[in-house]
Design a protein around this nucleic acid. Structure first.
Length: 283
DNA sequence: AGTGTCGCCTGAATGC
DNA sequence: TGCATTCAGGCGACAC
């Protein structure tokens, strides 16, 4: 489930292979993923030299030539693998998009559920593209702070958990890291977003940064589909404090499990939320 | 405008 | 064993 740390890890894996290389061939194996591939995708990529790579929210931006940016979103089950020159690398089910570089390295996008996206934007005004225009601040950037978050949550009646998933509030946080950050900050997931303020909000900002940074260090979390560009797996899932651990003791738990029932699972707007009722009180 | 719900899609896990 | 159902969740479309 690629969230910010997973996307960041994939981008870092791609960077040394792509940057400065040239795209010699492109293959598109079907018409669409979640949205159609641009009809002129192949034509606009082939022969172009690759510039820098940037991550914005959960999107990977790859500068190609002087005009375009190739944008890749991994959706839920997307992965990218790099197949080197000596490697036969048999094609796999759900390989939808392949770039062949001038040194014969292949960059292969695989996505069983096809919730991902591949499209092109213009270098000079990509930030105005609908996908990027109204995104919130990067949680690991300088523009993310308690006052900024307070401003974005002001008056919001939806739960703080839901608000953290809203990419207009802050980008890159998905279901897993929202649960983990709220636990770390000691905030109950059902508290109305607009009511989280003061010290709690400051703790939340720090918790979001901390959990994302820790996850990046661990190479992200592998639940089902997520893989690094070399096929290896992330291992942050072994450090989850609450996520997917209903009924178990939370990280650093000192309560009587048989009495409290441990970590609780609830559903908010169709999404699972995991939290510790002892450490995340409603008031 | 803000908020909540649904659908997209496959594969793994579970139920009968 | 085999078939049907449920669940996972990022994000956009849609209704209210």
């Amino acid at each position: 489930m690629p969230e910010l740390p997973e996307v960041e890890t994939v981008m870092r894996g791609l960077e040394p292979v792509l940057e400065g290389n040239t795209i010699s061939g492109v293959r598109v194996n079907r018409l669409d993923l979640r949205v159609p591939f641009p009809p002129d995708l192949v034509q606009r990529l082939e022969g172009q030299k690759i510039g820098r790579l940037v991550r914005r929210a959960k999107y990977i931006l790859i500068y190609v030539g002087g005009r375009d940016i190739l944008v890749i979103h991994l959706g839920m089950s997307g992965s990218i693998r790099i197949v080197g020159t000596g490697d036969q690398g048999a094609p796999q089910k759900h390989d939808h998009f392949v770039m062949i570089l001038s040194d014969k390295t292949r960059i292969i996008y695989n996505d069983s559920r096809r919730f991902g996206m591949v499209f092109l934007v213009q270098q000079d005004d990509w930030e105005q593209h609908p996908a990027f225009k109204s995104l919130g601040p990067e949680p690991l950037g300088n523009e993310f702070s308690a006052p900024i978050l307070a401003q974005r949550l002001k008056g919001k009646k939806t739960s703080i958990k839901q608000a953290l998933l809203d990419q207009h509030v802050v980008v890159g946080v998905g279901n897993i890291y929202a649960c983990e950050a709220l636990f770390m900050a000691g905030i109950h997931p059902e508290i109305p977003a607009g009511e989280v303020g003061g010290k709690k909000l400051e703790k939340l900002v720090l918790a979001i940064r901390k959990v994302l940074n820790k996850a990046i260090k661990a190479g992200g979390s592998t639940l089902k589909d997520y893989k690094h560009t070399d096929g290896s797996l992330g291992y942050f899932q072994y450090q989850f404090a609450v996520y997917d651990r209903a009924g178990q003791a939370c990280s650093g738990c000192d309560c009587h499990l048989a009495k409290t029932g441990g970590i609780q699972k609830i559903v908010q707007s169709g999404r699972s939320t995991f939290f510790c009722p002892q450490k995340q009180k409603k008031r």
